[in-house]
Amino acid sequence: MPAISIRNLQKSFPAFTLKNVSFDVQKGTIMGFIGENGAGKSTTIKCILNVLKKDSGLIKIFGYDHTKEEMQIKEEIGVVYDDLPFPETLTGSEIEKFMSRLYKNWDEPLFYQLLKQFKINPAKKVKELSRGMKMKLSIAIALAHHPKLLILDEPTSGLDPIVRDEILDLFLHFMEEEEHTILFSSHITSDLEKIADSITFIHEGEIVFSESKDVLLYEYAIWKGSQQELKDLPEDAIVRMRQGIYGVEALVRKNRIHSIFPTTRPTIEELMVFLTKGDI
């Protein structure tokens, strides 16, 4: 049973629509949710969490309908946004005091242990913390009630590489439990390259692909050459191409071209750019 299952999710705004979004996040895996700014990542996540009301579609979390069993589901979820959404006059220990009353499984010693590990002074107000510290506090809050599912909406955006790396390690540590699952939205694809098991790519409100990372990276390849050389490539192998200063680049299906054509393994970022901006 998937931890999250979405079928035909629709949500319309005057200037944007989520169109028939469907994908599954398997238990015990990290799914990277990628797409350019405004592609629909946050809208999808907010629909999953029922912060935004879906127009239609089916969303199940741990097999339960996300609105019918909302409170039970939310006991098992930890959410991290791209900022720390608490009034800035609060301190870490004040946040702990009221959050502990919200969750049945709240673990006070774990919260303070995480704060100690992150070198966060619990007496400091939110407004006195650096961006990196705020995100670490946000993660400590999300982990302190022993959730089974973490939903992360751009948790590493705006952070320096060292803090990002520390945070990714935390998520990997969380995944040591077999039952744990992460849905990780980001446009920093290198982060997902490091930790994700599967990737779902959303573009202009539609899912382009939702696939295991390894399958994706083995299925596609990047070929570089001149316009003349391009003519030698089998037409059905070319997925997208783009004109560069020094020639042509093409995203190709690896199993459709002969190994004599020199190709390189694409990064997730290259896949995203080709599928968004490349010509057919």
Partner: peptide
């Protein structure tokens, strides 16, 4: 005003509280 500034509601609604 504090809730609005910190965008609390989008987080508050992810907690087990109606």
């Amino acid at each position: 005003a504090f809730d609005e500034m910190s965008k609390w509601d989008k987080y508050g609604l992810t907690l087990p509280v109606s």
